Amino acid sequence: MADIPFEGAAGLILAGGRAVRMQEADKGLLLLAGRPLVAHAAQRLAPQVQRLFISANRNAERYAQYGQVLADDPSLDAWPGPLAGVAAGLLAWSGRWLVVAPCDTPFLPLDLTARLIGSAQAQGAPLAVACAGGRRHSVCMALRTSLADDLRGYLQGGDRKVDLWQKCVGGVEVDFDDAVDGFLNINTPEELSAAEQGASGQQ
């Protein structure tokens, strides 16, 4: 059961990537158990936040049914990576926190927001990133909206590496080893087929 929306937090689902390993398909709209991947992610994240945004650079009208669609800053180069979507989300939300997740992670933990923000607050950090099963899930993060200018400067300087920026701003890691399945990431057609087997038990 999901927690009540976390006060001052918005959610951002990243669906603006190129999806090279999916033959450049619009990954968020690929079907899992008869529904788009973005629908699964939205179902998990929306109850945890006050508002939901979708980072998308194509098919905006289809994504709009799940949240307010945000495109990447046109001043950046084409396909600038996930941090460009995060930058757009930070500018769009006037609250204190933005919780980010990719569209290809359909079984997100229902306490993702509370645990990420709670850990960041407890450690006095501006950003927290999820780790599970020995892996750092860099684009599953919560960050303060006050980082907007810092991130914009990072991108305008030509940098794109997510982990490097998180380290530069003092991000902390949050252990989700009790919820490894919640970070199942779908990057290939084979992984999408395999995810079908677990979809009925997760939704």
Rank of each mutant, 00 (worst) to 15 (best):
M141E: 12
Q121A: 07
L83H: 07
A64L: 12
L37F: 00
L110N: 05
F176H: 01
L143G: 04
Q121C: 04
D149S: 14
A88W: 08
R44C: 00
P109L: 09
D77N: 04
I54M: 02
L108W: 13
N59I: 07
M141C: 14
A101R: 11
R51Q: 07
V99Q: 11
S146Y: 12
G124N: 08
D149V: 10
L164T: 14
V49M: 02
V49P: 08
R44T: 00
A92E: 03
A71Y: 06
Q65S: 09
A120M: 06
R96Y: 02
L37H: 00
A56E: 01
V38I: 10
A42M: 03
Y66T: 04
D175Y: 05
R58Y: 05
A142R: 03
I54E: 00
A122V: 06
R136V: 13
S75E: 07
E61Q: 15
W165R: 07
L147I: 10
Q123N: 14
V38L: 00
D104G: 08
K161T: 13
V180L: 11
T145E: 03
L76N: 02
G118N: 00
D150W: 01
G170I: 14
L164R: 13
A122I: 06
A101V: 10
G170N: 10
L112F: 04
A64C: 09
A114Q: 11
A84H: 02
A71C: 15
G134E: 04
P80D: 01
D73P: 14
A84L: 10
K167W: 15
A87F: 12
V172S: 01
L112C: 06
Q166W: 09
V49R: 06
A88R: 14
G89T: 05
V129C: 05
R115K: 15
C131W: 03
E173K: 15
V162R: 03
